[in-house]
Amino acid sequence: MMALLGAVSAYTGTAAAQGGPGGGPGGGQMPPPEVVVRAVQPKDMPLSYEFAGRVNGSREVEIRARVAGILLERTYTEGETVKQGDLLFLIDPAPYEAAVARAEAMVQQEQARLAQAEREWKRIASLFERNAVSARERDETLSTLELARATVAGARAELRTARINLDYTKVEAPISGVTSLEVLSEGSLVGTGMDNSLLTRITQLDPVYVNFAVPDAEMIALYNLMDSGALRMQSRDKIAVQVKLGSGVVHPQNGMVNFTDSSIDPQTGTIRMRASVPNPDKRLLPGQFVRIALQDIVLKDAIAVPQASVLQAAQGMMVYVVNAQSVAEPRPVRIGQALGSEWVIREGLKPGDRVVTEGMIKVRPGAPVKVVEPAQAANQASGKAAAGQGNR
C-alpha cells in the first residue's frame, strides 16, 4: 500500500513538472485517467470473529477409593465408554461384611436391653403409683430406659455406617464418559488418602467444552455494537459457535457459549469464554487445539468497500470518491472489520458514494477522472499490454 502511495506521489510530481494536465510534450491536454467505481450501498453483512481455543471434557472426575482394602477386580476395559452407575472396581468386601454382621448383632443386643428396660419401667411405674417405691428408684428406672433407647439408636447408626462402607467396596462410575488407564492394578492395597486412593479418571466427551479468550477491546467493541442495535443476533448470552480443527475441517455440530468471565485477565488483557459443543462421534478430544468462530452475528446496514480501494495516507485511511462532476476527492474513512476481500467502513462514507476501486494509482486529488465499466477497463488494459509487446 505504501508503494501505491509512492507511485501516486511520483505520478503527481511528474505531472507537475510537465506543467499539470496540459503539460504533455506536444502541449496537448492529457486525457483524464480511467477508473472503475462502485456506488456503495448499505447491506447486512455477517461478522466473523475467530479465536484460538482448547478442548476440555465437560466433566472430568477422579475415581477414588472411599474404603481401604485389597483391590480384587477391575471390571471395565481401559479407554472404553462407561455409563453412570457401571461397576468399575471391586475392593475386598470380606472385612466389611463382617463389620455389618457385627453391627447387626449389636443392634439386636441393644434392642433386647431396651425391651428389658421397658418392662422394668412399666413395673416400677405401676408400683410408684401405689407408693410402693420411692421417687428416686422411679427416676433411675426412667433414666435406664432413655439410655437404652439412645444406645439402640447408636447401634443402628453404626449398622448404617457398616453397610455404607460395604457398598463402597463396589466402586461405580459417578458419570458417563471415557475411562483412562488404571492407576493401581488388581491386588494392590488401596487407601483413602490423597496418595493411595486414586484408581482412574473418567472424562465426559459429549458435550465437550472449548475454552478460548477474546481481547478486551474486541469484546467491548462487540458489546457496544450490541447495545447500539447495530447487530442482529439472538442475545448477548446466546452466541452460537463453530469449531474448526487444525486441518481446517469444520466440526459438524455447532455449539453455544455458556460462560463469559466477569473480569479481564490483567496479564493477557483478554476475557475468558467457554462454549459447549456436541461431540457424539468423539472427534474432539481434551487438550486439542482448535479455532472457534462466533456465528449468527450480522451487522445491519453495513457499508463495505474492496480492501484494495483503501489507501494509507499521512492522516490515516482514505478512499477516492468521484463526485457528480467526475472529480476525484480523497475521503478519510475509519475502517472496521475485514470480511473476505472487503473492509467494513465505520465512518466516512454514505449510501450512493462512488468509490474508486480500480485505477487509484493514476488518480490525483481534485483532478477529473473518466469512469468506465470494469469490462471496458480490462479490455483497454489488455490492448495496452498487447501494444507494448508489439513495440518490442
Rank of each mutant, 00 (worst) to 15 (best):
G154L: 15
P330S: 02
P93N: 12
V61C: 10
P46L: 03
V243C: 02
V243D: 02
I239W: 09
E73C: 04
M219Q: 13
R334F: 09
T75F: 04
V356R: 05
V214M: 08
P46S: 12
T179M: 04
A155D: 07
A98V: 12
Q111L: 13
Y49N: 11
P365H: 05
G57P: 04
P278T: 08
Q253N: 05
D237N: 13
M360I: 14
A17Y: 02
Q84A: 09
D296E: 15
P174H: 09
G390K: 04
Q109Y: 06
T161G: 03
P32A: 13
A105D: 09
M106K: 14
L285K: 12
R346N: 08
A135K: 15
A65K: 12
N211Q: 10
G13T: 06
V67T: 15
G191K: 06
A324G: 04
Q234G: 02
K384F: 00
D139Y: 13
A157R: 01
N56D: 12
P374W: 05
R160I: 00
G23A: 07
I292N: 06
S263G: 03
I175A: 01
A367Y: 06
A221T: 11
V208M: 08
T12H: 01
V210P: 07
P32K: 00
R392V: 00
V319F: 08
R74Q: 14
A293L: 10
L205Q: 13
D227S: 07
E50F: 02
D301L: 03
T260D: 00
Q380I: 02
N279P: 04
P280Q: 08
Q295D: 08
N379C: 01
T357P: 05
T141G: 00
A324Q: 15
R74C: 11
A375D: 13
E129V: 13
I335T: 14
I220S: 11
N254E: 12
A387I: 01
P330M: 01
Q389E: 05
D139A: 15
Q376Y: 07
G13F: 02
G352A: 05
L4A: 07
R201T: 12
P368G: 11
D227M: 07
L88S: 02
S276P: 08
P332W: 14
A98D: 07
P266K: 09
K370S: 13
V241Y: 03
V372W: 06
D167W: 00
T200Q: 01
D353Q: 10
G13M: 04
P266M: 11
L90D: 05
N379T: 05
A3H: 01
V107P: 03
G19P: 09
D281A: 15
A150V: 01
